[in-house]
Design a protein around this nucleic acid. Structure first.
Lengths: 157, 157
DNA sequence: GTAGCTGCAAAAAATTTGCAATTGT
DNA sequence: ACAATTGCAAATTTTTTGCAGCTAC
């Protein structure tokens, strides 16, 4: 099955139409699998392919994509929402583990999914159907720790 | 040690002044330990005690409190930041586990902290100093699951 | 053909900022 | 005394909305 077929199936199955704009947004996200694009960034990237698209459409599209599970919406506290494409074969692959450095703002991805046992307990104990989860650790990254040790203690603005 | 002494110590130790406004914000947060107040909500609650306080001060104060670790800043994707007071004796108590229901929007708190082993691994493997973490599970709560079973399948606006 | 979608521009909502007056140490 | 803090109002930023025209089915 082709990438755009997948998108169009998901749209149709959820009662939405397949449009050039939605395909374009999906394309951009697919081309940036590894990134966390903001609405504005998607907008800028799309300009090359279709300069007429309004940013309101991007907002509406990304919102829709999140609703039907095509993308994951991140919040890194940088003043805007960021989106990441969800793997097509996703079911267990909804792992979004990040390390956010308070000092340099770096976002480090964590690979392992050690959350499965925790999920099981929650599903049973709270009778809560888990669709997705986010795990975020805030702290100080390796690089900044090293710098701290060089410079003595921190006090940044 | 008295509550306000604690606040004033933390402020002083971080090079900030103790002010009536900061004490008031802290007081409001302490009175609402169990809640997740937005800036606007803190502002409204403070009006009774000091009607002259501007909302910009609340924004600045909550930001400051987060920076020096007095509060935890939540994001529940409802369009604003929400704050929760951090326990004074916190060190291991930085557990913020929530279940967010996609349907009714309910926020359920999870008590257990099963994250400790995961933290240890991350600290070692990434040499990342963890200051805080947030674990959020999105899904469907018990109540909504039951309603779904009654009504057949969902399709909400 | 018609409901759904888009683009535009205006509106709304949340947060930030500049600056003069005030306050804490 | 003097730097930090506040209050106010204006500015900025992000996101939403209304609506006329366009498009997919």
């Amino acid at each position: 099955m082709d990438k755009s077929d997948y998108l169009n199936n998901v749209l149709t199955n959820n009662g939405y139409k397949s449009t050039i704009q939605r395909n374009l947004v999906y394309e951009i996200l697919a081309e940036n699998k590894d990134k966390h694009l903001s609405t504005e960034e998607v907008y800028d990237l799309i300009k090359d392919k279709n300069p007429n698209m309004g940013i309101a459409t991007i907002y509406r599209t990304l919102q829709l994509f999140e609703e039907i599970g095509l993308v994951y919406k991140h919040n890194f506290d940088d003043g805007c929402s960021r989106y990441e494409i969800m793997a097509e074969d996703s079911n267990e692959i909804h792992q979004h583990h990040h390390l956010l450095c308070k000092i340099c703002g770096d976002i480090i991805e964590v690979k392992e999914d050690l959350m499965n046992s925790l999920e099981e307990i929650i599903e049973k104990q709270y009778n809560f159907e888990i669709l997705n989860h986010v795990v975020k650790f805030t702290g100080i990254c390796s690089q900044c720790r090293n710098k701290e040790n060089e410079n003595g203690y921190r006090k940044e603005t």
